[in-house]
Design a protein around this nucleic acid. Structure first.
Lengths: 215, 215, 215, 215
DNA sequence: GATGAATGAGACTTCATTCAT
DNA sequence: AATGAATGAAGTCTCATTCAT
């Protein structure tokens, strides 16, 4: 039925999304008209609508791409056995990402998606799914706490939230001040990660050990 | 009804800004039409334009208010002598703020301002000035490091960035998931704050003192 | 009944009209808002409406002033006994008027009134009355023709039209090119006036010559 | 219905301009809203803006058309070898034009353009270029004066101005009083044209002298 | 499948006028 | 009488989307 191959369709789709990202990074979602995307992509109005139902669908598709990217980054990091190593990997992954000049453009779009998520239910759902990627981290913290490597006073969910908050917060700062020193920030994050276990002995290594023996 | 007092003018201004915040929180800047603000405020189109040059001016005025609010919150915290106490205060201040149901509405607008700052130079400048509020924290970290209370490996600027990132990141999360447990997050943040000095004594109080002498 | 003297009212009226002329000369009728006139006059909106029913009434009042001015200029010229002298006087009057720098501003408004007359019946009526001022000239031409000083082939009405056309046409040119040489134009107009009698011999040179000798 | 021919585009453009002229002749530029032109043209708002950037661009395009028309009329007349014949042709051309009932509508627009030229620089430039069309006439007068057929006291530039002024002035009168007798006016204009050479004997030329003796 | 001209609702903004003070 | 804030209809223009070719 399709006169063009699936590969061709997919490449056209990407062409449109790339053009849209360029426009969105430059002017924001709402200041970008479909005409702008048409001009940037080199396609025609009709062609765009052959691939996407409308502007919102393009925004959703970009959000989806971003989500897939984050999921992959996280999966890579979480493949590590050790929580601390995994968190370091994750932090490094983010900082490498922050350095990529092409990704910088995309991150401007990310921040807009964060705002868009507040109103657009479709984007909201995708951001929500992005937040669920925290789950493996939370589970790892929970395990670490059970093993007494994290103080019992710290909520595993709150811990993974804090990790994500640090990274999101820095993404904002870098978008606002592109020249900032990611390396120095990374050092602080690593210091924070390494310090999370501090005080874990207070409520008892022994207890944790006992728990550990049981399991 | 001409010849109104300055107080009256100011109250009208606030009336418009409040209406705008309500609309922006509900639908976002760009999905909110001036007509929506008119309807919400109970004023007429012409009246709005007597107070603001246009939608962008309203957005900028809101950004300005937000900035003033943050500056006040920071100034309150930074009045403390001790850095750790100040940071705890700051974190508590943010969390109290996060709890205020009326402020919740406003924070949704804040996040939109963060995105808007990327494209609207006027809003960008205001966000920029917000970032400069970090300066007293950075200075406090610098002083603490000099006194050996913070490891020399940690950059004061990066430290204050990390503090801000944690808070900004959490604001995002709370906007996306209004029901999350701010208390548990606060506990983690306090743990992180308390742990920042870790390692400073290992490598030595004495060492720090020596460094101090050298410089 | 009036709390202010009639003289005061009249001076206020003129103040408004002057401000309006300034605005109209600068931006045209339609690009000038009542607010502009308010600002230029230094009065308040309410005050303006105490003197004029609206913008159209201001325009009509200005047209009326212009008409009175032209009528006076014409009456002055037509006081002359001799047609040729009268026409010379009239032409000189116009050219003097063209030289007055303050009148230059007003003439820009005149041209707009010419256009406005096509659509605004009130202004149209005033312009119409301006055209009726041609009547004494037409009568003078008719008399001159009867006396054989103008060829019988020339219609007195058309002659007075031609005189007016020359002057109106030059007003246009001067408005478009403020630097043009009015003197040289006047010379041509005088030459044309003096030549109108050429060929009048058909219906009686002798009679004309006799009269000519007398003058 | 995409991919339309150039001819189709051009016809649409003319359709819009015709509708605009109808509206402008009826109500004037400023009392005509874009909606009026839309209704008159039978197109949609968006379509109009696909052809013209806005109302001013439509006005400018009309001015451009008018200019082309005048240029053509002048070129036709100036093709004549003899100045007097050329001027007669020109006058006849104008008067024929004045008679055309469809052109009558357009002339109302012309007068508005004259006023508009005072404030709208784009229209001003086009009117300016219209005035430059006088140049061939001026040159012809200069040549005639050199040959002694025009008195040396008359400035060629002022002479061509006077010709134009007569015609412009009459256009005004005809717009204000549509019923006036163009024929009678034409007779006067021809009389004036024929009389321009009168008095040329001052600077000599036997031919000129002979004419001079007769009068 | 692709094209891009056309649609028309709706966005922002202005401004003549009113009227409470 | 004077003021000038407020009104709200009306103006200009944009833009997501459709559909004849």
């Amino acid at each position: 039925m399709p006169k063009v191959s699936r590969a061709h369709r997919e490449s056209r789709r990407q062409q449109i999304l790339e053009a849209a990202i360029t426009c969105f990074a430059r002017e924001g979602f709402h200041r970008t008209s479909i005409q702008d995307i048409i001009a940037e992509s080199g396609l025609s109005a009709g062609a765009i609508y052959g691939y996407f139902a409308g502007k919102d669908a393009i925004v959703a598709a970009i959000a989806e791409n971003r989500h897939a990217h984050e999921a992959a980054m996280l999966a890579r990091a979480m493949a590590r056995d050790d929580l601390t190593t995994a968190l370091h990997d994750l932090a490094h992954g983010y900082v490498d990402w922050l350095r990529d000049p092409d990704e910088r453009r995309r991150r401007r779009v990310n921040i807009q998606l964060w705002a868009e998520a507040l109103r657009n239910p479709e984007v909201g759902a995708i951001v929500q799914r992005g937040l669920e990627l925290r789950e493996p981290i939370t589970r790892a913290f929970r395990a670490a706490r059970r093993r007494g490597r994290i103080p019992a006073s710290l909520d595993p969910d709150a811990l993974s939230r804090a990790m994500l908050a640090l990274l999101h917060g820095f993404i904002l700062q870098q978008a606002w001040e592109p020249g900032i020193d990611a390396e120095a920030f990374l050092t602080v994050v690593e210091h924070v990660i390494d310090g999370l276990g501090r005080g874990a002995d207070v409520r008892g290594r022994s207890q944790a050990r006992r728990r550990g023996k049981r399991s």
